[in-house]
Design a protein around this nucleic acid. Structure first.
Lengths: 225, 225
DNA sequence: CGGTAAGACTACTGGTGAGTAGGTAAGGCG
DNA sequence: CGCCTTACCTACTCACCAGTAGTCTTACCG
């Protein structure tokens, strides 16, 4: 929750370009996430950023460029957060678990980023959808790779990248949807939400209704069957 | 894919109100799904519908009203399709299965409807989000009721509506996401996609990687594996 | 074969917002 | 201290689009 100073209708203090660009980007993410791409105006973004409109154009180009830049920055931040959270030398279920925790952790800490990524970008028909689709594609590929690596789906002979990709798409969508649900029910900690999804996708309803639930490693008995 | 006739810049033929309203709605769903709410203009909708703009306003009111009406109509159609597909007197897994089949069947047959529902409506901050959220809420409640009914989650004592609702939200999101993925990989039939999601949410990765897959009860003989 | 009301149109207004032209202050450097 | 570059601003243009005023036209009913 950065407090953007409106600078009280005076002349803004002279600052180096890099700093201003950062301020502008923060403001843009804030406004885009609240209003969506079309409803957000460059006037409002400049006001929130505490500078005037021409600076926006001088520094970040057109509205579309600005939006695309926002998506790139935020998606990169999120992917890095997840990549940092995953412990690559662990078994598949633990990798998935740590990835989910990192994901929900990021969403909880960066709601604006999440809104701009998930809600706004996906609904614009322009070049942004591409930007966003790329990130989504990377996330799906990541999960798909994890699945392919974890097993060869013995009883599904023709299963391969396609099968894994579809399942990964479903999983990513489940994560997105649950993240949205979480924003409406924010009283729960990130870990609980992550654990729910973990149980759903790893155990499945079939196991859950029979009382079989998945535990994180710290609580799991070191067994191997 | 209804072919809307632009009527070649002449005067449109005189038609009863109900028919025109239907044409307009079809055109509106088409345009909204392609361009999104803001980017869609009333001029374009009227052009696609083959009538002039004042008719739009005379019949369907403002742009916002028109959009809300579109969402209501399409969401109702979809919910009815699903409700008709579910066989209420079957065990939980079969109910879920038939619901998923109905859902993917609808999306496959009504891509525009799906786009307008999923992508466009969810990203607008206005009263539409409400309309859409209502339908989503109904879908989630439906799934949640199925889950609650199917078992009491024995090992999760405090689990209740909340637990089920969260899982239902995840499942609905997974369905939405997989439907989007499907639009990019349309060579597969609806049943295959539905079966994938069914396996994911009922069996879970944990079972899938061990080769345990779910298949419909023997009323229909599955392909031998 | 009129009369009339619903169906349909052309041509406008008004507001909003992207993008710009051209001018003003402030720091750096000789 | 004066010059010049860079940051910054006010105040506009221009296009697009939601919504409307006022007019025409055609099907139907007597």
């Amino acid at each position: 929750m950065h407090a953007e100073q409106p600078v009280s209708t005076g002349r803004a203090k002279r600052l180096p370009r890099a700093v201003r660009e950062r301020q502008i980007m923060d403001a843009a993410v804030d406004v885009f996430s609240r209003l969506g791409f079309h409803a957000a105006s460059m006037d409002e973004i400049s006001e929130v950023a505490g500078i005037s409109k021409p600076m926006l154009y001088a520094y970040l180009g057109s509205k579309e460029e600005l939006f695309a830049t926002c998506i790139r920055r935020e998606s990169t931040r999120m992917m890095e957060a997840i990549a940092n959270g995953v412990e690559a030398d662990q078994p598949p279920d633990v990798q998935l678990w740590s990835g989910l925790r990192a994901f929900f952790g990021f969403v909880g800490e960066n709601r604006s980023s999440w809104q701009v990524l998930h809600r706004q970008a996906s609904s614009q028909g322009g070049p942004f959808a591409q930007e966003l689709a790329d990130m989504r594609g990377r996330a799906i590929s990541l999960v798909a790779a994890l699945l392919v690596h974890s097993a060869d789906f013995p009883n599904v002979p023709r299963a391969g990248d396609k099968e894994a990709e579809a399942l990964a798409a479903a999983l990513v969508g489940a994560g997105e949807s649950l993240a949205d649900w979480w924003l409406d029910n924010p009283e729960e900690p990130a870990g609980v939400v992550a654990a729910r999804l973990m149980n759903l996708v790893w155990m499945g309803f079939g196991d859950l209704v029979e009382g079989n639930i998945w535990h994180p490693p710290s609580r799991r008995v070191p067994e191997d069957d």
